[in-house]
Design a protein around this nucleic acid. Structure first.
Lengths: 198, 198
DNA sequence: GTCTATAGCGGGATAGAC
DNA sequence: GTCTATCCCGCTATAGAC
């Protein structure tokens, strides 16, 4: 536990997170296939071989980044506990999505772009989590249709359309833009609500 | 012009398109960085060195694929000559987008995923073309707002939101799905129209 | 836990024969 | 126009010293 008296080049507690941070930033920017373990190591400030104290291989490193992200998203969704009438739940889902995703542009980008670079097993795991998220939205839409407050000819299509619209936001939004988070939330909540209205 | 009596391994007129086709399919599936010139050559049925009769390098091959796609899209947009009131033009834009993009899933995928693998110059060229397409939609929305038939607080955001929604369609639509092209067109035209309505 | 060094492989691109 | 052969480079991952 002692902070001092650490052995020579030993920095386990600090290097671990730095490896994930560096991989996140580099892979988001250049893509998994285009980023080498040497580049990640250089960003962290160690030699390439040292990375293998923190991940068994490059594939697992990618999977961990994507898996952590999806767990964060689903945890936030569960914590929100959306309830009430479908209109309010849809509004809550939209704002929740934006509040979770906008501050994590690198994770969102990787979650979208790197699915095809996952091993089959890892892909299946993440696909299942992604399905859970989509289903949460589709349930809201179905309830709203049943209650007569939404008008969508196909809840599956509306689900995919809304998620594409929301996730697209992460691909162009910049913190230093002319619009703040709250304004963006209001505008998208409006677009989404109207798109499924009668 | 003679069909027979061709020299030994000479197949210029047929190999050229095959190189682009193979590159399109492989890069869409695995990503530019993950596909090797050897793989493309194998798909075509030639040796790797022979590819360099058709492209100066791998980067140019990628650029040509993306450039051809954007030219097709913009040509279709120009040919459509959308006119009339903004509501009709927005409906026309939506259906035009779907009719152009759905039959070209590989091109659409590459246009989205491989922007970061372009050289700076090539990126600028394609970014300018993409801007033209976005601007066509934004002009419609602005005219509609001015005419009082659309209600959007920010035409730029609405433009990006609609294009994200439409392009997302290409990422999950399958020909063999339960819905045909015409039904998809109607549903999305409806979603888009309502999202910007008053 | 990190380093240096390296095994083993595959990449893009070119040269020259046919 | 295609082939074979090759240059030169960078990659992932491992081994063993410290």
């Amino acid at each position: 536990m002692s902070v001092m008296a650490r052995k020579q080049g030993s920095h386990s507690d600090i290097t671990g997170p730095k490896v994930h941070d560096a991989a996140l930033r580099l892979i988001a920017r250049h893509g998994y296939a285009a980023v080498s373990m040497r580049q990640i190591a250089a960003e962290v400030g160690v030699q390439a071989g040292a990375l293998y104290n923190y991940t068994p291989d490059k594939q697992t490193l990618l999977f961990d980044l994507m898996h952590n992200h999806m767990k964060d998203v689903l945890a936030a969704l569960a914590a929100a506990g959306l309830q009430g009438d479908p209109v309010a739940r849809l509004d809550g889902f939209t704002r929740l999505h934006i509040r979770i995703h906008l501050p994590r542009p690198d994770q969102v980008f990787i979650a979208y772009m790197e699915l095809r670079n996952l091993s089959p097993d890892n892909f299946d795991t993440l696909e299942a989590l992604r399905r859970q998220y989509e289903t949460a939205l589709e349930d809201i839409l179905r309830d709203g249709v049943a209650a007569g407050v939404f008008c969508v000819p196909d809840t599956r299509i509306a689900t995919m359309a809304i998620i594409a619209m929301l996730t697209g936001l992460s691909h162009w939004y910049r913190d230093d833009g002319r619009l703040g988070l709250d304004e963006i939330e209001d505008i998208y909540a409006d677009l989404v609500r109207k798109s499924v209205s009668r």
